[in-house]
Amino acid sequence: MRTYVSTIGYYDTRVVRPVLNHGLNAGDRVVLLRPYNDDDDGDSAVADVKQIFSELGPNIEVVVEEITYDEFPTAVMECANILAAAKGETVANFGGGPREIFLAFTVAALVTNDQLDTVLQFTDIDEDVQELRLPELMASLPSKTDQTLRTIARLDGETTLPVIAERSGQSRSTVGRHLDDLEMADAVETDKQGKTRHVELTLGGRLQLFRRR
């Protein structure tokens, strides 16, 4: 079972195409986010989404959730609760939609990143569907890993555990423990090639360093 969560505006394509590209099966659920007390302009898009998915199968549920657009903290929490309550594989779709709730949905997705299985984006320029990897911003990195993280950043690109140890003046065992912590926080990606552990900084790791400047 999948649950797709997406903001929706006037264009059903920004919801329908990402869902169909990723896959839709009986029992899946599509949650459409709209500002509460919205006017009727978006009703046709919602109706089109329901019609298209109903033609694909009778067991596909389409639900509309109204978001409090005029109180930003409330909007963020409402979006976060919807994402956290999603059943099965959770897919967040950034296809556009009302600006009033798009930022709140974005913040909520970053906060619940560890609960999202897939993040999709419909691009206006190419009208293509891209799969994104959101950076992990909520993790707290142990201060003891700071020297290792900064060394990886200075090496600028893929490197190895032995090189990090040499450049940072730390033992390989210490760097190995730091890499375990950093990988758990999604600040680095590591890959064992033979006996050598290869390491690369993630976007989350770069943003963690940017915040520490």
Rank of each mutant, 00 (worst) to 15 (best):
E127R: 15
D126T: 14
V31C: 03
T151E: 04
H22A: 10
A108P: 00
T159S: 09
V62Y: 02
Y4M: 05
Y11H: 14
E127N: 14
A108C: 08
V175L: 07
C79K: 01
V5F: 02
T190S: 13
E78A: 06
L32Y: 02
S140K: 15
P18F: 05
I101T: 03
H22I: 05
M77C: 05
H22Y: 13
D70M: 10
R29P: 00
T196A: 08
M184R: 13
P135W: 03
F210S: 13
D126L: 12
N81D: 12
P135Q: 08
T151A: 14
G95M: 04
E61S: 14
V76K: 02
V129Q: 07
M77L: 14
P18S: 11
R2V: 04
G157M: 04
A153K: 10
L149T: 07
V63Y: 04
V5R: 01
L110Q: 05
G57I: 11
T160M: 07
A92W: 02
M77Y: 10
R172F: 04
E78H: 05
D39G: 15
E189F: 11
L137C: 09
S168K: 08
A185I: 07
G42C: 09
V46N: 02
L56W: 00
T196C: 06
E55H: 08
P35D: 10
V107N: 01
S54Y: 07
H178A: 09
P98Y: 06
R167M: 13
L116V: 12
T123C: 07
M1G: 08
D43V: 14
R34D: 02
D146W: 06
D28I: 09
P73C: 09
T145W: 01
L33A: 05
E55Q: 10
Y69K: 11
L137D: 05
V46F: 05
L209F: 02
S168Y: 03
G204S: 12
T174I: 12
T106I: 09
V30A: 05
A139D: 07
L24M: 11
G57Q: 03
D70Q: 11
T151L: 06
V76T: 07
K192V: 13
R133G: 14
G57K: 04
A84W: 04
E71L: 11
T145L: 08
T13Y: 08
G88C: 06
D191Q: 12
R154G: 08
S171I: 10
Q170D: 08
D38K: 12
L141G: 05
D117G: 15
R29K: 15
D146R: 15
D180S: 13
S173H: 09
T145E: 06
S6P: 00
